[in-house]
């Protein structure tokens, strides 16, 4: 092939694509009811956190971008069957765009060392903060009032914190079940390491 740098490494592509699909599936599944409250916990916005925790920054960011692009194009993959440009231009659009930074931040922190639960907690908490960093000012501009945006967003903090803890616990369990997932190099042609197949 004349342009070697343009080829996509298959393993990276597969993980990116499958996790974009994973975030979509989280939206298809109905929310989980916790305790006696009538408010379902929507699983989807844990998707970028989990992608970052499990795939690392580069692939997770790519999969969130792919998911959001496919959604913006008009597929109803956001939870509640929403899709199109609408959700991005709506009041909470900043939180959707923030998923990209969120996945990136989680991935950066998660891949810096041992995949312990405390590290996962810190990574996911930072990811949530990254999402707020974009989402709340966006809402503030939308409302024309930053203070109101803060108050409105505060409603979601308890649920989001619960999701951060859940994502951290889940990610550390997944890493225990599948060691080497995050560290998996891009060039892993098959189960046997060593021979790059060139």
């Amino acid at each position: 092939m004349p342009e070697p740098r343009a080829t996509l490494p298959a393993a990276d592509v597969a993980r990116t694509v499958v996790f974009a699909a994973f975030i979509a599936v989280l939206g298809v599944f109905p929310g989980v009811y916790v305790g006696g409250s009538g408010v379902p916990i929507v699983l989807q916005n844990a998707g970028p956190l989990l992608a970052g925790s499990i795939l690392g920054a580069r692939r997770a960011t790519a999969s969130v971008v792919l998911f959001l692009a496919v959604t913006a194009v008009g597929l109803p993959l956001l939870s509640g069957g929403r899709g199109g440009i609408g959700p991005f231009l709506g009041p909470s659009g900043g939180f959707l765009i923030g998923w990209i930074l969120s996945a990136f931040v989680v991935g950066i922190i998660a891949s810096r060392g041992l995949l312990t639960l405390p590290r996962m907690l810190v990574a996911n908490l930072a990811g949530l903060a990254a999402d707020y960093l974009i989402g709340i000012p966006f809402l503030g501009i939308y409302n024309g009032n930053m203070g109101a945006a803060l108050v409105q967003s505060a409603v979601f903090v308890p649920g989001d914190l619960a999701k951060v803890v859940a994502a951290a616990v889940i990610a550390s369990l997944v890493h225990r079940a599948l060691p080497g997932t995050l560290a998996a190099p891009t060039s892993r042609p098959s189960t046997k390491p060593g021979d790059p197949g060139a």
Binding site: A11, A14, V17, V18, F22, T181
Partner: peptide, 15 residues
């Protein structure tokens, strides 16, 4: 998620 990662690896090998 465990099955998702496994599926991704299978897809990667197939690709």
């Amino acid at each position: 998620l465990v099955r998702t990662v496994r599926h991704a690896d299978e897809l990667g090998e197939a690709l």
